[in-house]
């Protein structure tokens, strides 16, 4: 039964996220005073990619592509989507973070398997950036876990129930800021899209992908975005009913797009340094506040 819910979740994720991607491209276009594509343009791109023929650089190149898409789809199943939980109790924060890691490891392996140095440089940049954005985010959530004594995401959502004032956005403002910055890092949106820098390293890891491999990678990217933004919404905005959840989701994602539409790109040396300056400091302060003073968890309005 829960496997069916999981499958349903994957379909919902695909449909919702890809349409939202269309709107997102429309919004970026409007920011650049352009007309922008139709809403279903991303569907077209994905299906066009699957319709084309493709080349294969050996076993690990194909296996990695399958592993990355498979891993990310598995993670979608575990993420609570506005109350629908496929396996209740098993949606542990660390499990989700590390299943995401399966996805990125698969992509890294197949990218390097393609033999193109640009792909290796792209993978190196992706992993370096991951060290950057992952640690502050986990510290903030670590504070939350200690505060509430549970690391299951649906439990953290229930804690924020009851109106706007109980959201973690207000209970832990610094945590929310750090969460949003590392969300931008996870999504590889403009300031942090060093791994897939089309101008510098010919779209990084994706350089050798064409046809169905490219299609699978685009799907994986969509599912990964769904998970990361879903994670942020659950943890910081207390994802309520389906409509409320989707509105919050769209709001967060479009807000991130607007920011990324106007910003330039970091140099890779600066990315880690940037993440370990302000965001890490904020996350440590936030975790210290939660752990030692309990403000935002026990002591709240």
């Amino acid at each position: 039964m829960s496997y069916l819910i999981g499958l349903m979740l994957i379909v919902i994720a695909f449909l919702w996220q890809v349409t939202l991607e269309g709107f997102q491209r429309k919004v970026t276009a409007k920011v650049q005073r352009r007309v922008g594509p139709r809403w279903y343009q991303t569907f077209m791109d994905i299906f066009k990619a699957f319709s084309k023929s493709s080349i294969s650089h050996g076993f690990i190149y194909d296996f990695g592509a399958m592993m990355t898409l498979g891993g990310t789809m598995a993670t979608v199943v575990f993420l609570p989507f506005s109350g629908i939980v496929a396996f209740n109790g098993l949606d542990n924060f660390f499990v989700i973070i590390y299943l995401l890691a399966v996805g990125s490891l698969g992509m890294a392996m197949s990218a390097v398997g393609s033999g193109n140095p640009w792909a290796s440089i792209g993978v190196m940049r992706a992993l370096t950036q991951m060290v950057g954005y992952e640690v502050p985010f986990m510290i903030v959530v670590f504070g939350m876990i200690f505060g509430y004594g549970t690391s299951s995401i649906s439990a953290l959502v229930e804690v924020q129930a009851g109106g706007f004032l109980n959201w973690h956005l207000l209970r832990m403002p610094l945590g929310a800021i750090v969460g949003f910055i590392s969300l931008m890092g996870m999504l590889a949106k403009k300031p942090y899209d060093t791994p897939i820098a089309p101008a510098e390293i010919a779209s990084g890891p994706l350089v050798e992908y064409g046809g169905k491999h490219l299609g699978m990678l685009m799907l994986q990217h969509e599912f990964a975005v769904f998970i990361e933004v879903g994670l942020f919404v659950n943890l910081f905005l207390g994802g309520g009913g389906i409509v409320a959840y989707l509105i919050k989701y769209a709001a967060v994602y479009l807000f991130a797009t607007i920011i990324s539409a106007v910003l330039g790109r970091f140099k890779i040396e600066q990315v880690v340094y940037h993440f370990y300056k302000v965001p890490l400091a904020l996350s440590l302060i936030q975790a210290a506040v939660v752990i030692f003073t309990g403000l935002g968890v026990e002591i709240w309005l």
Binding site: M66, T68, V77, F78, M216
Partner: peptide, 11 residues
């Protein structure tokens, strides 16, 4: 199992 299922789907 879920990871295996996901992998099957991708395959």
């Amino acid at each position: 199992l879920v990871f295996g299922g996901g992998f099957m789907l991708a395959a």
